[in-house]
């Protein structure tokens, strides 16, 4: 059957009207995908009903929208932070008042005074807040430095350099006297959701799991497991929680002792 005949066979009208059988519909949908003329004919016919619907639109009862909304689950977009509740200003016009004029002036002055005081207090509060936050910043810096010091003392530093696939990557491993290992992933990119970096130590030619790097953790230098006789270290990107064996194609950096 040639295309022209098919198009004028009435199947397209049936399809748009909803009277075509499942089989006929499936056939048409298949033909549509492979023939632009048929696709166009179908879309044109469907458009008739779109126009009809638009022009025969009837306003639904006003309560319906809320009812429907209740049944749907929404993901609030990032911009939707809070509900904006408009404040309606009531402008009251006072016709007569029994408050003497001087009182009105005085009260205004007091208000100004209070306002200024309020401003002063506020700015002092802001200053205090600033100092407090500086303080917390400093103390966290200090503890971080203390931490780093403990690690660097008595440790051997091993640079893990990027493999062929990730040439400029760098990580650092500190292998402490007490055999504890610390990892700093330096410039490795943030792991995608659901994935995590895993550290491996090569012992006797075999990879041994040294733990996962926690990107949520504030500390850049994190304690991992301990190892007695590592020959080398490597980092691979695994699924969150890690893998029993390393995924070799996902190796980022590596370094020998």
């Amino acid at each position: 059957m040639d295309i022209k005949t098919y198009i004028s066979s009435g199947i397209i009208e049936s399809y748009a009207l909803g009277t075509a059988s499942q089989e006929e519909s499936a056939i048409l949908e298949c033909v549509m995908k492979n023939n632009a003329e048929v696709m166009q004919a179908v879309f044109e016919t469907q458009e008739i009903f779109e126009k009809l619907a638009t022009q025969q639109a009837m306003e639904p009862p006003s309560f319906l929208k809320a009812e429907i909304r209740k049944k749907l689950e929404f993901n609030t977009s990032a911009e939707n932070v809070g509900k904006i509740i408009p404040l309606t200003k009531k402008v009251e016009e006072s016709t007569s008042s029994s408050i003497p004029g001087w009182m009105k002036a005085a009260s205004v002055a007091v208000l100004f005074g209070l306002g200024y005081l309020g401003y002063e207090v506020n700015s002092k509060n802001n200053q205090i807040q600033e100092i407090a936050s500086n303080n917390t910043e400093l103390s966290s810096k200090v503890s971080h430095l203390e931490e780093m010091n403990a690690v660097y003392k008595n440790s051997k530093k091993i640079m893990l350099k990027g493999v062929e696939k990730h040439p400029d990557m760098l990580a650092e491993v500190y292998w402490n006297d007490s055999k504890q290992v610390y990892l700093d992933i330096k410039n490795l990119p943030a792991a995608p959701t659901g994935k995590q970096y895993q550290l491996w130590a090569i012992v006797d030619g075999k990879p041994v799991d040294m733990g996962m790097y926690d990107e949520q953790n504030q500390s850049k230098v994190q304690p991992m497991k301990s190892v007695e006789t590592p020959q080398a270290f490597a980092i691979t990107l695994e699924k969150a929680g890690g893998n029993a064996t390393p995924t070799m194609e996902e190796m980022y950096v590596m370094g020998t002792i």
Partner: peptide, 11 residues
Amino acid sequence: YENYSGALYGV
């Protein structure tokens, strides 16, 4: 809802 509810309701 704003743009299509009327058409759908009509049908």
